[in-house]
């Protein structure tokens, strides 16, 4: 959705148009949910956080002055909510891909995203995926946050910089460093597997 369409949608929302609200939620919920689900590892909690994010948007939209930074604002709220939710809980997340909603059960499954090459060979094995996710969790929080926003929220680096309120150069430098660490950890993991 381009900046003009978002601005129009927001002004309709500010006027109290319910269909505009639905359209706004439809436009963003999947990316927000994808990020929240990956960070928390709990689908129900992720849903709550997404709802809370939109709720805060509803409550503050009256005072919001759109300058083409709505997406960054939206994700900043979610990132802060996830952080505030408690790091201790996130360190030991309850893994769940099931949501119980009004007696209905919604289930999600993991899928290998794309057949892309790993450091040396394609990620064909489940172990490789697990090792990669473990490596991602081992990254420093700030670095991991950037990679997760880029991958799970499909957020461009420019918007990540706005969301985290830091210069684009800093975000790119941290992303570059984090990707390098991820590669190193995967190489170590591969070496261990081969030696066994």
């Amino acid at each position: 959705m381009d900046a003009r369409a978002i601005a129009e949608l927001l002004s309709r929302c500010q006027a109290g148009d319910q269909t505009a609200w639905d359209a706004l939620v439809d436009a963003y919920w999947q990316r927000l949910f994808g990020y929240a689900l990956r960070v928390t590892g709990n689908a129900e909690l992720a849903q709550d956080l997404v709802q809370e994010t939109f709720l805060r948007i509803v409550q503050r939209l009256g005072k919001y002055d759109d300058q083409g930074k709505f997406e960054a604002w939206l994700f900043r709220i979610l990132v802060n909510l996830v952080r505030d939710h408690g790091r201790s809980r996130l360190r030991h997340p309850t893994q769940s891909t099931v949501i119980e909603s009004d007696g209905e059960r919604i289930e999600m499954t993991d899928e290998l995203a794309a057949k892309v090459p790993a450091p040396h060979e394609p990620l064909h094995h489940r172990e490789d995926v697990d090792a990669l996710q473990v490596a991602l969790r081992k990254l420093p929080e700030g670095d991991r946050q950037i990679l997760m926003l880029r991958h799970f929220a499909d957020m461009p680096f420019k918007d990540i910089a706005r969301t985290l309120n830091c210069p684009i150069g800093t975000v790119l430098a941290r992303a570059h460093r984090a990707l390098g660490k991820l590669r190193s950890m995967m190489e170590v993991s591969h070496d261990k597997t081969e030696s066994q």
């Binding site: 439809d26 999947q30 689900l37 949501i99 993991d110 899928e111 995203a113």
Partner: peptide, 23 residues
């Protein structure tokens, strides 16, 4: 590409609809 190879949660269209409605 290594980062992109981390799987994302996949949802069927039905699940997507249900979740959107629920949210």
């Amino acid at each position: 590409s290594l980062l992109r190879s981390i799987p994302k949660r996949q949802m069927t269209e039905e699940t997507r609809q249900k979740l959107a409605t629920s949210i």
